[in-house]
């Protein structure tokens, strides 16, 4: 009986509406936390594990030596490597594919790499338009590495002291 009376009182005074509006009113004056992606970005840890890249040495030589440790350690079997002896006698890959549909971004490949060739970058906003695009080929990986060289070098340097 008493509860019913309170309800009737609340309905007629619009107290619940006002309560809701007060939140809106408060947020009207508070500083905004919304980020205008992609123009604005939140800070990302240097350890963030985004899309992969293959790095090069400063002289332009690819780092990867086809040791296949990343392939072996990959828990999702996302990496496929074929190797051969290049004409100059060094061991190199002829194929280095990462299937992004399989990849779980665990970062083991980066951990396993003895020459810091394969890395995971901070880039997470990528897209592809065809099914084939989901497989990163060696050329694409090197391209990502070249395009984002500065970023990769910076994040790896930042993280290096904790390794």
């Amino acid at each position: 009986m008493f509860d019913k009376l309170i309800k009737i009182f609340k309905d007629f005074t619009l107290s619940e509406l006002l309560l809701g509006m007060s939140v809106t009113a408060k947020e009207l004056v508070n500083t905004k936390i919304t980020v205008q992606f992609p123009e604005e970005r939140t800070p990302i840890s240097p350890r963030f594990r985004g899309i992969h890249a293959l790095r090069r040495y400063p002289n332009g030589e690819e780092r990867c030596i086809a040791c296949k440790l990343c392939e072996a350690v990959c828990p999702a079997n996302a990496i496929t490597i074929e190797s051969e002896m290049r004409d100059d006698g060094t061991r190199r890959t002829t194929q280095y594919d990462i299937d992004l549909f399989k990849c779980i971004y665990c970062g083991f490949c980066e951990e396993a790499c003895p020459v810091d060739a394969i890395v995971e970058t901070q880039i997470f906003d990528y897209a592809f338009e065809s099914r084939e695009g989901s497989v990163l080929t060696k050329e694409r990986l090197l391209e990502i590495g070249d395009e984002n060289k500065k970023l990769i070098d910076k994040t790896k340097l930042e993280d290096s002291k904790y390794r």
């Binding site: 086809a66 051969e84 002896m85 061991r91």
Partner: peptide, 9 residues
């Protein structure tokens, strides 16, 4: 067989 495969493959 040089540089073709690793033994575990």
């Amino acid at each position: 067989f040089r540089y073709e495969l690793r033994s575990w493959q």
